[in-house]
Every structure is written in structure tokens, then in C-alpha cells.
């Protein structure tokens, strides 16, 4: 599946207009001989079969190919940029989960207090704003970019968690606990949060994918030197080795996050 996703991405880019051109071709200082050499270099990348053969051969030994648009080995580029994106995603998810779950829990714990209505309104508003616009607002406000990722994932977390918790709040064991006078942390932790933990863990996997996807516009707009910015530049430069590697990386991260979430969900749902 992983390989298939990467290879399909490569195939689409290969057939995009302007695939085999190089911006240097418009540099009037370069001689005809140099321009011909530049064209020959790019033409060598045009054959899909040769590309796949070389790429897969290299992949077996950890070589992800060479980026012509950035003049660097792809492995180096990924190594340099991955930490920035991982930090953005990790901190953003933490903030998004704290805010989303916090609002959802408050709404469930204090029904009729207006928290639910307020949270739903905020989540609905943010949901209708594209990630790029959120990025622009954070850029102009001078606020931390990680929080922008948090804002993007917040409505998804809030909406789903809120629905789950409100359902839980109407279950007999919660009503009984309330009737017995259980409140505060005990009600939240033991009776409201514990039952839907499995579903929330599954949501965790999904939010990783959402946060990862939001990184492309956010990193481009906020000038974060991460994977998202690299993907954008590679797409503009029709940089096949970078795009294939990024597709594989994205598929790997998405599948790993979902697999971990599934395992966590299964273990949390297990009785006892």
C-alpha cells in the first residue's frame, strides 16, 4: 500500500505540465552548451521506469534520491526538516486536545451552563476557516505557530469528544453517580471520561493525519522550514524524488498513527 501510494504520486507529477523543465533555462547568462546539459539532466529523470528502478534500488539501501530543485540528497532534506514538523504537530496536537477535550468535558460536566453552546459555536466557526487563513491570522498576530495547528484540530476534537461525552453523561451509571453526589474530578475521570476512552484514542489517530495535512499551508505561510514547506516547494519544482519520498513518509506516519490508535483503542475497550 505504502509503495503504491508513493508510486501513484510520482506518476501524477511526472505527467504534470512543466515536469522536465528547469528555471535555469531562462538564465540568459548560461551558454547554449550549459543549457543543453541542464535539459539533458532533466530529461534523464523523465523515464518513469528508469526512475522507479533507481529509486527502489536506492530505497533498499536507505538512499531516497537527489533533489534537483534543491540540489541536495532527499534523505538529508527530510532529516533536517522532520524535527520542525514533528514539533509543530506534537505541540499543536497537545494544545488542540487540551482545548477540545477541556471544552467537551466542561460541557458534559456542567450541562446547561452554556459551555456546550459556546464550544459548538467556536468549533463551527473555526471549522469553516481554511488552515491557510488560520496560519495568516497567526502570522500577523505574531502568535506561536504551534497554536495554529491546535486551532485547526480543535473543532474536530471538540465536536467528536463533546458528542461522545454528552452521550456518556446520559448513561444510567453517570446519572446514578450524580444522584449519589459524586462530582468534580471523580465524576469526570471515573464516570465521564473512562467509558469513551477507546473512541477518543481512535480519534487521536485521525487528528495526527489532520495536523500533518495542515502543516503544508501553515508552514508555507509562516515560513516554518519543515516537511510541509518542502512538499510545497517540491510540488512547484516538480521534484519527483522529494515528492515520492514525502508521499511514502506521509503514508507511513498516517498508517502508524492509526495503527497505534487502534491498538490503544482495543486495549482501552477491553473489559477489566
Amino acid at each position: 500500500m505504502l509503495l503504491l501510494a508513493g508510486l501513484l504520486g510520482a506518476t501524477l507529477v511526472r505527467f504534470a505540465p512543466g515536469f522536465a523543465v528547469d528555471e535555469r533555462e531562462l538564465d540568459t547568462r548560461l551558454s547554449e552548451e550549459t543549457l543543453n546539459a541542464v535539459r539533458a539532466e532533466r530529461a534523464a529523470d523523465a523515464g518513469l521506469l528508469a526512475f522507479y528502478g533507481n529509486y527502489l534500488g536506492g530505497l533498499a539501501s536507505g538512499d531516497l534520491g537527489f533533489s534537483r530543485s534543491l540540489n541536495r540528497p532527499v534523505r538529508e532534506l527530510l532529516g533536517e526538516r522532520l524535527p520542525a514538523t514533528l514539533r509543530l504537530v506534537a505541540v499543536g496536537l497537545l494544545l488542540g486536545w487540551m482545548a477540545g477535550l477541556g471544552f467537551a468535558l466542561s460541557g458534559a460536566a456542567f450541562p446547561g451552563s452554556g459551555v456546550s453552546a459556546g464550544g459548538a459555536a467556536v468549533a463551527g466557526l473555526i471549522l469553516s476557516v481554511p488552515a491557510a487563513l488560520v496560519g495568516l491570522a497567526f502570522l500577523h498576530g505574531g502568535w506561536p505557530r504551534e497554536a495554529a495547528v491546535g486551532v485547526v484540530v480543535f473543532p474536530r476534537i471538540y465536536s467528536y469528544a463533546s458528542r461522545l461525552l454528552q452521550e456518556t453523561a446520559t448513561r444510567p451509571h453517570v446519572l446514578l453517580a450524580r444522584a449519589k453526589g459524586v462530582s468534580g474530578a471523580a465524576l469526570l475521570g471515573r464516570h465521564l471520561l473512562r467509558p469513551p476512552l477507546g473512541e477518543l484514542a481512535a480519534l487521536g489517530g485521525v487528528t495526527v493525519s489532520i495536523a500533518w495535512g495542515a502543516c503544508i499551508p501553515l508552514e508555507v505561510l509562516c515560513d516554518v522550514p519543515g516537511i510541509g514547506q518542502l512538499a510545497w516547494n517540491a510540488a512547484l519544482g516538480r521534484d519527483l524524488p522529494v515528492l515520492v519520498s514525502l508521499t511514502l513518509l506521509t503514508a507511513l506516519i498516517t498508517m502508524s498513527a492509526n495503527a497505534l490508535a487502534d491498538i490503544a483503542a482495543a486495549s482501552l475497550r477491553r473489559p477489566g
Binding site: A16, G18, F19, A20, V21, D22, E23, L26, T28, L236
Partner: peptide, 25 residues
Amino acid sequence: LDFPSLIERITRTFDYDACLLGQTN
């Protein structure tokens, strides 16, 4: 057009009528 597509048209396919561009000196 995005830049690679434009370069392709003015240097390879010649599938264009007229082009508006700047020159870097």
C-alpha cells in the same frame, strides 16, 4: 500559468500565442 508550465510552453512545446514576462539583468 505556474512557472514550470510557462517555461515548458515557451521553451519546448511552443504552444502559446504571446507571453508577458520580465527579464533579469
